[in-house]
């Protein structure tokens, strides 16, 4: 895109948003019993990412996803829709899969975050990563880190007895049948349509 279509430059935008940031606490402070340290425009946040403590200083607006990608350069976690609809940003926080785009980094001080980089690496793949390779559980690969993080935590949910929309009997042990896997993975969209192979890869790890 040519600059002549962009009378406002990105640098100007950044400067103006920084100015509005600086003003925010002044309007708030008027009638309030908000604690002084809450009014800071940046917050120190200690996150445990893939087992390592990482101290960041963040604008409270920073989502966990942007903290991972832009501040920690952990770009394995992907930004798809940025609205919780596609699942590309799925990470595991304290053992639970969540959409990292729909949560603020400051909400996760002290939490343990596992990203695709923490699950495995070339040469020491997590079983789910290896199964995705074996079954061609992707084409372009963009949704894959989210699919894999989601699948790993999803099998944990089955093991803990979390039911699903397609579980017939709430009194019985939850299974990892193909319909169960498909329903439980519905928060992860694959634009290439690799679903059947994704389901096979997950089934293999589940031992189904």
């Amino acid at each position: 895109m040519s600059d002549r279509f962009l009378p406002i430059r990105r640098r100007d935008l950044l400067a103006s948003s920084a100015a509005s940031l600086a003003l925010a606490p002044i309007s708030l402070a008027k009638g309030a019993n908000i604690a002084a340290d809450a009014l800071s425009v940046v917050k120190p946040v200690n996150l445990k990412i893939n087992g390592a403590d990482r101290l960041l200083t963040l604008d409270p607006r920073t989502t966990l996803l942007d903290a991972l990608r832009e501040h920690l350069k952990l770009t394995g976690t992907k930004k798809g829709c940025d609205h919780g609809q596609c699942g590309a940003c799925t990470v595991i926080v304290n053992g639970q899969r969540i959409n990292s785009c729909l949560t603020l980094a400051v909400q996760h001080a002290g939490d343990e975050v596992t990203t695709i980089e923490g699950l495995g690496a070339p040469g020491k793949l997590h079983a789910m990563q290896a199964a995705f390779v074996e079954h061609d559980g992707y084409q372009c690969g963009y949704c894959t880190p989210g699919q894999i993080c989601s699948a790993v935590a999803m099998l944990g949910e089955i093991a803990r007895g979390v039911p699903s929309h397609v579980s017939d009997d709430l009194g019985k042990k939850m299974t990892s049948s193909n319909p169960e896997i498909r329903e439980r993975m519905s928060g992860n969209i694959c634009r290439c349509g690799a679903y059947s192979n994704i389901a096979e890869a997950i089934s293999q790890v589940a031992g189904a």
Binding site: T90, I98, H165, G187
Partner: peptide, 11 residues
């Protein structure tokens, strides 16, 4: 369980 996705229900 009829609503949202696994990720959203966790949060």
């Amino acid at each position: 369980q009829a609503g949202a996705s696994g990720q959203l229900r966790n949060k």
